[in-house]
Amino acid sequence: MRRRQRATVTGVRRPQSERLRRRQRWYFALMGTCVALIVLAWNVVRLWSTTAAVAMSLVAAVLPPIAVIIANWGEDR
């Protein structure tokens, strides 16, 4: 099933540079969140709860593949 594209007056897709910029912002935001979670987990949170630190690390481990999928989304069209 193909997603319907947004209808515009001209029917022209957004420029490649704009789509790339949006995907890059999402990628860097997710990777920044990943780094922040790891730093906070093992420098701050582990002092109170090792379990919470491990949980934060697990979430941080899942974020890079998600960031890559978002960064490459829609390039095969």
Rank of each mutant, 00 (worst) to 15 (best):
M1N: 12
M1Q: 05
R3Y: 14
R3Q: 15
Q5A: 15
R6C: 08
R6W: 09
V9F: 02
T10M: 01
R13E: 13
R13N: 06
R13S: 12
L20F: 08
Q24K: 13
R25Q: 03
W26H: 15
Y27L: 10
F28I: 09
L30N: 04
M31E: 02
G32T: 04
G32W: 07
C34K: 06
V35K: 08
A36I: 14
A36D: 13
L37I: 02
V39H: 11
A41L: 03
A41F: 06
W42Y: 15
N43G: 03
V45H: 05
W48D: 01
W48H: 04
W48A: 02
T50V: 13
T51H: 06
V54E: 08
A55E: 05
A55K: 10
L58R: 07
A61F: 09
A61C: 12
A61R: 10
V62N: 05
V62G: 11
V62Y: 13
L63E: 05
P64R: 01
P64G: 02
P65C: 01
I69C: 11
I69S: 08
I70N: 04
I70H: 09
I70P: 08
W73L: 13
W73Q: 09
G74L: 00
E75P: 13
E75F: 12
D76Q: 12
R77D: 14
